[in-house]
Design a protein around this nucleic acid. Structure first.
Lengths: 229, 229
DNA sequence: GAGAATTCTTGTCCCGGATCAAGTTTTCCG
DNA sequence: CGGAAAACTTGATCCGGGACAAGAATTCTC
């Protein structure tokens, strides 16, 4: 608790959303911030809670999901460092439609609604950035929807792998950012089906699975599976 | 073509989004507007087109959808009078992820990006309203997602009927806002399945179907089907 | 490093809803 | 009004992926 003020200011200045916010507003925002250090598995908020601000992930990983039938859950999104969540509900008079849970020990900043509104009023550029951020979120939701509706399970998995592939290496590789259960839910599959699909792709020689590390010997061959099968 | 300027201004003033926008900005917006009168079936924009503004529905009905396999399509949303669409893409450097098509002869206003940005810069309240509007859209997408993922076809149909029921009448009733094919796609069902589900509900005495008009003798009985079956 | 808890895999069965194929009814237009 | 085109219904069949169960492999935790 030595100099939390300084910490927060420099963190804020490095978040993409606030990258271009200048001095008077930045301090204002920093003053409206609160640190959170949720442990792995800890809930940040529950579905139905009211919102009076939004969250920025300094480091760690947060899962957004809603409870589904039989005590299960559907993962809507996995939020990583530098990203934010909860902006949308802040602008409405509605409670959170999802719950947020830390996947690993994390460091979050909570930005109070009031401080943000004040900063937005004196900086039109910030409002535009928030609009762009929400738009992006909306786009990716529509993309997910498209994916769920018109693609088979295998195609969704292949799409996910190609989207998350780390380029530049001789053999392209993907390091799954969370447990297979979580990824499966994100792809709207049961863990069993996800496992089977990875197995099939593996058998076909299109990928190689070692725990959470998946290597892709021939990216183009895998890509050819998107349209077909 | 007598006095388009006046027409547009009064239309704008009645759209919820611009309800509280005051005079200098309103004229600015009106000057950035263009009228469109698409006929039934006409395309407003195609998936992949770039966006340089957004649309307000003065009257009529617009369908937002994306093409899916085998020349089919998945309806994402049905936009009615007073609502707007295309705001999200305007704030990003991406093309439209969906296409827009008039379901009936309609009257649209196209608001140019530049005029809107100018108005937003001098009116922070407008920026907040746009943010609230996008948030609402995002919420309803998440809600749809939830619906698709954890509810059966019958439950989705029941949910839709209850959500669109017109209250106050002795027998609650729903007038489907579009053809059954379009509603079916909106609910992520094939027309065949939708037809069968309506038939089943009808047989069970829970609803009565007369063309596009559906009456609900006992709303509570129908509501009880949401959790169950 | 042994036991417990969790995660992941694999097998079997089954069902909701898609697909294909005909009808039937309604709407559209000349 | 009459014929064509859409929209809607009904039936038969099929299959992807969910549910359940039980075993294998990992990863906590003490």
């Amino acid at each position: 608790m030595a100099r939390p003020q300084l910490d927060i200011r420099s963190l804020l200045a490095h978040v993409p959303l606030f990258r271009q916010v200048a001095e008077p507003q930045l301090s204002e925002l920093a003053r409206g911030c609160r640190e959170l250090r949720p442990k792995r598995g800890e809930m940040i908020f529950q579905r139905g809670d009211p919102a009076n601000g939004f969250y920025i992930v300094a480091h760690g990983q947060i899962k957004l999901a809603f409870p589904s039938a039989h005590g299960g859950e559907k993962v809507v999104e996995i939020i990583g460092a530098g990203q934010s969540f909860g902006e949308a509900v802040m602008f409405m008079e509605k409670p959170y439609p999802v719950f947020a849970q830390a996947l690993v020990d994390s460091l979050l900043l909570h930005v109070a609604k009031g401080a943000l509104f004040q900063a937005m009023d004196s900086d039109p550029g910030l409002a535009r950035k928030m609009l762009a951020g929400l738009s992006l979120r909306l786009h990716s939701l529509i993309h997910d929807m498209e994916t769920y509706c018109s693609l088979s399970g295998t195609q969704r998995v292949v799409g996910y792998l190609l989207q998350h592939e780390c380029l530049g290496q001789p053999h392209a590789a993907v390091e799954l950012p969370a447990s297979k259960q979580v990824i499966a839910s994100r792809l709207n599959l049961t863990p069993e089906t996800f496992s089977r699909i990875l197995h099939h792709l593996s058998e076909a020689g299109l990928i190689r699975v070692e725990g959470r590390r998946i290597t892709i010997p021939d990216v183009d061959a895998l890509r050819r599976h998107q349209g077909g099968s």
